[in-house]
Design a protein around this nucleic acid. Structure first.
Length: 656
RNA sequence: GCCGAUUUAGCUCAGGGGUAGAGCAACCGCCUUGUAAGCGGUAGGUCGUCAGUUCAAAUCUGACAAUCGGCACCA
């Protein structure tokens, strides 16, 4: 519709607004001119323009016909601008307060921004209030943010003369064709692609600095460690406050905190990165594992169990010893009679090599495929100290792991079946599939393009058949094959990658696994590595935070507590306990000589879903008064009926 | 592994160069109670570990460990 060719400066420029109306301007025109022509209010509110979908400075001349949208603080795009601009304000404030600090990069990110600085002296969070005050001061100055196009060499010289070696390096590494733009806000200048708002006063002061962290220059651990300051910024104080409240809410859900409060598990120094599961936590773990076991068995998998400890030769053959040896737990074992010779062993970091050994036993024919081997095997990986994080990142873990040995032709149908199983499991657990990504061939890979074409195509069509929307994670597949990454969304909107399916036409071959095809030829099977939850440990961490400790009845460790009003009811409470336990429920009895209020409070804080109160009335009528977690009403029910109904309610979703 | 912070009673936390505190929990006693904390009492700590400085270290210094926030890593 609109012209995209460059128009001479003298010819009129036609700008199309979102409503379809067209405005024509004679001279070079800016977004602000356009906004002014529409209305004074809009001109005042305008902070940027969107030109054919590209965000641009409000005061940058528009050279050609285009679709134009005026961006105000209310626009969806405004938050990124506010955050990026606030990052610049942070940088100027830091340099004003701490001369000699070098600036590097400072992008907007989800919910905020950060800026990385190079400075010998560490920042302290105690500096935050001074920095924030300086930021407010700069914003109050309301100086214009001006875009300047600089000569490359001049820009390098300029930043080097100011001792900004990181900025100079950035410019040097920009492609020769790239226009070098520098934004000045008052006397302060920063290399930046932009766009920015017209002046600092427009940025607003609804920001807050949140945390300090180290970060490698250019994300590479070989480079210098910079100091990163994270902050959040919003349109107004109300939005800011909402976000800060959300952070607090997320902290309350922290699985490490809830794990302690609900007595689910603990960690201790002597076994960093490994979980001590307490009776309640282990009850949940086992209920979840039993559920997954039933689901995969119904889906045609067979469960196996493979060793923990292998001679290093197996991992050398599989390739893991070389690639991941540093992250494996290795053990040198000396025989008593040969003290000179130590044999190296490795504790398995994954189950696949073991599964190939099981596959290799006996001769397999194409008629045996697909063979789906599932294992809940304990794996160990020596994760770096700094990587450990509660249940989310541990050194000892169990995956809901399985390897499907199949033919190339079966990749698609097996992938489709897996997608359906995964979706059904997530639904049972109260999650939706938030996102699916297909990670395709990386630069460094093995296998012919033909096989990659086939594998990727199989995954594409499996996803289409499963009716799952997905995007491409370009060149991020494993070196041995493409993979699917499944994300779920939790109750407070966070996405977690849990499920995965990886096509592998490499490992079985490396370890000598073959099957006899229809043509009588031996060939290696394709292996599909797949997990739905990922690891039980991490998944339970996510699940605890998702539920904020209020677990569904079938997974919760203690489903009901029977509370006596007075000790006169102790005998009946024991009878009720026997009845409910016989019905399969996980029940406790509270006969402490406490007031019922105290008992209700204690068990409510423990997030027990069902509190069954029994006193004289219930004992006489053989009933229970049921109070549900968070509820205010009571339901009086006969004991036998309660046992039946609650046991039904407590059934895992696949058994209802 | 890297940067920064933190580590005091079972838990949450205060304190701080002269030898340790609160609330809750625990234990004991009283109360026998009807839907989110009844009352009183008792006990509980080499102040993460190991060194150093000091007449004296939980407090100051250093090393180490773990944890927290990130970064890097994540088969």
């Amino acid at each position: 519709m609109q012209q995209t060719s460059h128009a001479p400066a003298s010819s009129p420029i036609r700008l199309t607004l979102p409503d379809g109306s067209v405005r024509t301007f004679d001279t070079p025109v800016t977004g602000l001119d356009l906004a002014t022509s529409i209305g004074a209010g809009l001109a005042k509110a305008a902070i940027a323009v969107k030109l054919d979908g590209e965000m641009r400075d409000l005061l940058r001349p528009i050279e050609k016909d285009a679709k134009v949208e005026i961006i105000t603080r209310k626009s969806a795009e405004a938050l990124d601008l506010i955050r990026h601009d606030t990052a610049h304000i942070l940088a100027e404030a830091v340099q004003e307060l701490f001369p000699g600090t070098q600036v590097t990069i400072g992008p907007n990110i989800e919910n905020g921004f950060y800026y990385d600085f190079a400075r010998d002296v560490p920042f302290s969070t105690d500096d935050f209030s001074a920095i924030e005050a300086k930021m407010r001061e700069i914003i109050a100055r309301d100086v214009p943010l001006v875009r300047e196009v600089w000569d490359r060499n001049e820009a390098i010289k300029f930043f080097e003369s100011k001792g900004e070696k990181y900025k100079a390096e950035l410019i040097r590494d920009l492609p020769e064709t790239e226009t070098i733009t520098v934004y000045s806000q008052g006397a302060w200048k920063d290399l930046c692609r932009g766009p920015h708002m017209p002046s600092t006063g427009k940025i607003g002061t609804s920001f807050k600095l949140l945390k300090l962290a180290g970060a490698y220059w250019r994300g590479d651990s070989k480079n210098a460690m910079l100091q990163r300051i994270y902050g959040t910024a919003w349109r107004d104080d109300k939005e800011l406050q909402t976000h800060l409240t959300q952070i607090e809410e997320a902290e309350k859900r922290d699985h490490r905190k809830i794990g302690k409060e609900l007595d689910l598990f603990h960690f201790q120094d002597e076994a960093a990165g490994s979980v001590f599961w307490h009776p309640k936590g282990w009850t949940m773990y086992r209920a979840l594992e039993a559920y997954i076991r039933r689901r995969v068995e119904k889906a045609g998998y067979v469960e196996v169990n493979s060793p923990q400890l292998y001679d290093s030769s197996l991992f050398k053959a599989s390739g893991h010893w070389d690639l991941y040896g540093d992250n494996m737990f290795k053990i040198a074992i000396k025989e008593a009679d040969k003290p000179q010779e130590a044999r190296m062993f490795g504790i398995k970091p994954m189950n696949c090599p073991g599964h190939v050994q099981i596959f290799k036993q006996g001769i397999k024919s194409y008629r045996d495929l697909p063979l789906r081997l599932a294992e809940f095997g304990m794996c160990h990986r020596n994760e770096a100290h700094g990587a450990l994080h509660g249940l989310m990142r541990v050194r000892q873990f169990v995956q809901d792991d399985a390897h499907i040995f199949c033919t190339e032709d079966q990749i698609q149908s097996e992938s489709l079946q897996f997608c359906e199983l995964l979706r059904s499991v997530y639904a049972d657990l109260g999650f939706e599939v938030a996102r699916v990504r297909l990670a395709d061939r990386p630069e460094r890979r093995t296998g012919s393009d033909e096989i990659w074409d086939k594998s990727e195509a199989a995954l594409h069509s499996a996803l289409k058949a499963a009716n799952l929307a997905y995007d491409i994670n370009t060149a991020d597949g494993a070196f041995y094959g493409p993979k699917l990454e499944f994300y779920l969304r939790d109750a407070i909107g966070r996405e977690w990658q849990c499920g995965t399916l990886q096509v592998d036409f490499n490992t079985a071959d490396r370890l000598g696994g073959t099957y006899v095809g229809e043509d009588g030829q031996k060939r290696p099977p394709v292996m599909l590595h797949r997990a739905i939850l990922g690891t039980f440990h991490r998944f339970l961490g996510i699940f605890i935070e998702h539920c904020a400790g209020k677990f569904p009845l079938w997974l919760t460790p203690v489903q009901a507590v029977i509370c006596t009003i007075t000790n006169d009811a102790d005998g009946y409470a024991a009878e009720a306990y026997d009845t409910l336990t016989a019905a399969g429920l996980r029940v406790q009895v509270d006969t402490r000589p406490e007031k019922i209020n105290a008992k209700i409070r204690d068990h409510s804080l423990q997030k027990i879903p069902l509190i069954l109160v029994v006193g004289q009335k219930e004992a006489e009528g053989k009933s229970v008064a049921i109070r549900r977690l968070g509820g205010e009403t009571q339901e009086i029910m006969g004991l036998a009926e309660a046992a039946t109904r609650l046991a039904q309610e407590a059934l895992p979703p696949d058994l209802r």
